[in-house]
Simulated scan of single mutants.
Amino acid sequence: MVGNGAGQPHAVVTGGAGFLGSHLCDALIASGYRVTCVDNFETGRAANLRHLEGDPRFTLLRRDLKDYGDADLAGPVDVVYHLAAPAAPADYLLDPVATMRIASTGTLNALDLARSRSARFVLASTSEVYGPAGEAPSREDSVGQVDPADGYGAYYEARRFAEALTTAYRATYDLRTAIARIFNTYGPRMRLDDGRVLSRFIRQALAGTPLTVPGPGTQTRSLCYVDDAVAGLLALADGGYPGPVNIGSPEAVSVFSIAQEVAEIAGPAAEIVFVEPPVTDSQARLPDISLATQLLDWQPRTSVHDGLTATLTWFQRVGARRG
């Protein structure tokens, strides 16, 4: 546990109302932290934090990180987790300028907060920095290839810039930083409108409509359950390794297998049909997690079946409207 040795440790989570951020807030509180969540709710959801309302260990600051100042938050801070960034194509393609502003000005403000409080800083980056998926698992020493002028360039370059800025603060100010490259993560509270194939399968299963598998279904995806991803972030924060380090599942699962699992969990009435694949349908990026295993003693623990069961059960209980 990151702490200053003087009372209850304090963590700041930017983007804490999002899918991954809200689970991180839960885990930090469960491990003894006081948590301040900073979120402007452009992509985060109040429902993700409703269970924390009234908890004295939790504070919500509704702020836009691009305009956020250090004066907004009083007292010592032990660790800053910077998760504030649009992660779904529907969001970052809608306003690419805002996407780059949060990666630049927003990350600057988060880093300055950590620097002013001598706090550990953990950046949640993305596997997208590696560029197009290849056959071999992505290693942290791969420089990747990204086209800044294509339609997705604003997001790719925004995340690469955030990594470069974090590295610069470490070198220039001796700030204790760490970079996590998050691969595909799923679980309760995930958004069902994010354009991903698993999200579509769950949405279709909840609606009682056929699960539509694109093409032959042999294309693969990498699925890391959210509790495992959060455990990786906590382990990275508690160590001294600056990263980048991959956090994700090294197991490639076919799209058809995912559909079969969801259909089995949904019940006997669930049907699978095959449809024409989109032009841009691709294989998944797979992480090489050797560094995380060796340096953080971390690897995913949740099987795809158990994770999908927990996820679908949660959505069946709370309703698809939460996704």
Rank of each mutant, 00 (worst) to 15 (best):
A168V: 00
D150L: 03
L165G: 07
P216V: 00
A164D: 13
P132W: 05
E128T: 09
S116C: 10
A207V: 10
L198P: 01
T166Y: 00
L123K: 04
T172P: 00
M190D: 06
P137V: 06
S118V: 06
D150S: 11
A149S: 08
R196T: 15
R221W: 02
G131D: 11
R170H: 14
E128N: 13
T185Y: 08
V213R: 08
V146T: 12
A164I: 03
M190L: 06
P148K: 11
L206H: 01
A154P: 04
T126Y: 03
Y155W: 07
L192I: 11
A124T: 15
F183H: 07
Y169S: 10
G134Y: 04
S142K: 00
L123D: 07
R191I: 01
T166N: 05
A154D: 03
F201Y: 15
D174C: 08
F161Q: 08
D141Q: 12
Y156E: 04
F121I: 11
E135R: 14
A171W: 14
L175S: 13
R159P: 00
R115T: 12
G144P: 12
V146N: 14
Y169I: 01
A205G: 09
V146P: 03
A164V: 04
A133I: 14
S199P: 07
Y130W: 05
S118H: 02
T126Q: 04
R200A: 15
P148V: 03
G215I: 02
I202W: 02
A168Y: 01
G151D: 10
I182N: 10
Y173H: 15
G153E: 07
P137Q: 10
G153W: 07
Q219N: 09
D193K: 08
R176H: 11
Y173L: 10
R160F: 07
A171Q: 13
A162R: 01
L206C: 13
G131M: 11
S199V: 09
F183G: 06
S222D: 07
A158H: 04
G217H: 09
A124I: 09
R203N: 03
M190K: 10
R139T: 14
L223W: 13
P210D: 11
R170D: 08
L192H: 10
G134W: 02
F201T: 06
G217E: 10
E140W: 04
R117I: 15
A180H: 04
P216K: 04
T220P: 00
T218V: 11
R181T: 09
Y169F: 15
A168D: 05
R221H: 08
V143L: 14
A205F: 06
I179G: 02
S199E: 06
R203D: 07
D141S: 14
F201G: 09
A136W: 02
T126V: 00
R160C: 05
R189N: 13
A158Y: 06
A178Y: 00
A207C: 11
S142Y: 12
Y152P: 00
L206A: 04
A158I: 03
F183N: 12
P210K: 10
Y130T: 03
V122I: 15
A124V: 11
Y186T: 07
I179N: 05
R120L: 11
A154E: 01
P214V: 02
P148C: 14
Y152G: 02
D147T: 09
S125W: 05
V213P: 03
